[in-house]
Design a protein around this nucleic acid. Structure first.
Lengths: 337, 337
DNA sequence: CTGTTAGCGCGTTCAT
DNA sequence: ATGAACGCGCTAACAG
């Protein structure tokens, strides 16, 4: 009773459609690809057969046949942060419009995992990819290019052949605001250093610390693991002995932890403690007091990234601007003076 | 200089590896699939060739050859809401562990779009899919099954052959809390009705209204388009003429809109106005006052969904519990009494 | 306008 | 243990 072949007779193929319609498979192929050189009559017959059988062409076979998978890869860190998922939304949205399916590759924040992810990205045979990953070095990104996969890189300023990049300018705007505070004579800055927050945030940190040194000021670094709860608890503790300061947090939910801890310790905001969030979201203005923060429309970043990618993939229309900048806008709200 | 052919000689195939290693492609295939019947020596030779050439098997060709794409489909509405992106995170995480790549199919909230998405889901040749989409009817979901795609459905109580389901119980817990408020003699309930919020929320609305009728109470429905800003503005207006009430919002960010509007209208919370959010997130406890809401660990829902799916896909280990329930937990906080 | 045939890159018998 | 040959489902010349 070796009838294994019979039990898996599921997927309808182009052959069966051809047979039912009484034509050759080439004709069916022409119909589904809208090649106009087909008689209206036979076309109808084919389409009817397709309907009756419920035939759907296999993207796998199509991909193999013309070495285009109509898939794009999206490499991002865990979407837990809302700015990442907003970006993701924008990317998938545009990809869909252009007829691409989005395959997501989540990277943990380790070199090792990044290598694995790159591996599967290449195997997966995507037509192109957009990469937003703080942990990846430019060399690793270049290695992907050895496989001729057009790339859009977000957050690295890179140039290359089938390579575009999007730059997120948070650092300068943030530094401008902090500099102003410092140069006004203040020397009360505390910087929240969250482990594994990524390269972008780290660079801001370094820039700030360097600037402070140059100006004979001091920045106190407060190190925490990621999570609102941890920071909130830590800051409650902190405010038992400290009664003021100018605090900088990577994201607004973390800024909220400071704000809440301060307020519940009887401190006034912004008179006693000021709080600044580097990456803001809609919660910056939902929270009370509203949080001063910097923002970039990440949905738009995602849209632009994929739109650039489709240009890269469409050999007929060369991408002109291969690098695009988004500059964070400062929204001064109620947690700073 | 018409050397176009040379410039597109990109992907390394199994043939080239075979040639370099001095074996046949069958042997290479055995090595990359870890079929043990290969001499250690030739195995080494092959592996070295693979290294030198930087060969990566094409998932496309592999998929075609054994009709398994090692891709799973994930159908979800826009990830804008954090509970959706948390779920997504959980799904992708587990998929990765099991060696699957995740293809995301975003659905807008219309029947038409849903049909298109289903179409591309089938074409994409995924091995299985998990569907979380309020707008889809059970009949449409069944139609996917005609293509023998194992499915996990979240939010619908369905049974079927290669079909598992996860039920999200928000309705009963929410109704319990509201009933208690009503039965305590109150008749001051306002329900925020956000357009396109999805079936799950709609069902709670209907349940609530029915219950009110049966008990001779009244529920005032406040209709808004989605967005914090719109609701906030609308409620500011509302509170010029209304000075109290028990408000129910679909999500905590919307609840925050009510809370903020009320507070800024000089009303006390929860003495004058009480606010309850149906779907809570971490912001329920980040916001001040903290918002009373219901919660399910959506990351876990996502994990469980994909784990169930992998069981469905693994023919050797049949899935025993084909339906799984998550019951929302009520977190009474500061916006209700 | 339509059918035939040769790949696309890889897995898998069936021999050797 | 290893190689030759066929098939997965479809596209793209090439004939007719």
């Amino acid at each position: 009773m070796e009838n294994k072949k019979i039990m898996r007779k599921d997927r309808v193929t182009i052959y069966e459609v051809a047979k039912v319609a009484g034509v050759s498979l080439a004709t069916v192929s022409r119909v589904i690809n809208h090649h106009d050189n087909v008689t209206e009559k036979t076309k109808q017959a084919v389409e009817e057969a397709i309907q009756r059988l419920g035939y759907k062409p296999s993207a796998l076979a199509q991909g193999l046949a013309n070495s285009r998978s109509t898939n794009i890869g999206i490499m991002i860190p865990s979407t837990g942060y809302s700015y990442v998922s907003n970006m993701l939304d924008g990317m998938i949205d545009v990809a869909k419009i252009y007829g691409y399916i989005s395959s997501i590759f989540i990277t943990k924040r380790t070199k090792e995992d990044a290598a694995n992810v790159i591996e599967s990205l290449i195997k997966s045979h995507v037509d192109g990819a957009v990469i937003f990953d703080d942990e990846l070095g430019t060399d690793e990104i270049r290695s992907i290019q050895n496989y001729h996969i057009p790339l859009i890189v977000i957050g690295h300023d890179m140039q290359g052949d089938a390579l575009g990049s999007i730059i997120l300018e948070y650092k300068d705007p943030v530094m401008d605001v902090v500099k102003e505070h410092m140069l006004a004579g203040n020397d009360d800055i505390y910087l929240l250093d969250i482990v594994n927050e990524g390269k972008m945030i780290d660079e801001i940190k370094e820039g700030l610390i360097d600037f402070a040194k140059e100006n004979n000021k001091h920045i106190e670094v407060l190190k925490f693991n990621d999570s609102y709860g941890l920071v909130y608890a830590g800051m409650k503790d902190f405010f038992r002995t400290h009664k003021s300061g100018y605090f900088i947090a990577p994201r607004d939910s973390l800024a909220a932890a400071i704000v809440n801890a301060a307020a519940e310790s009887g401190l006034r905001i912004p008179e006693d403690v000021q709080v600044l969030a580097e990456i803001g979201s809609k919660y910056s203005y939902i929270l009370r007091p509203q949080i001063s923060s910097f923002s970039i429309d990440m949905f738009r970043v995602g849209s632009v990234a994929v739109r650039m990618l489709t240009k890269l993939l469409d050999t007929t229309s060369p991408l002109k601007d291969k690098t695009f900048k988004f500059r964070a806008k400062f929204n001064k709200r109620s947690t700073t003076e």
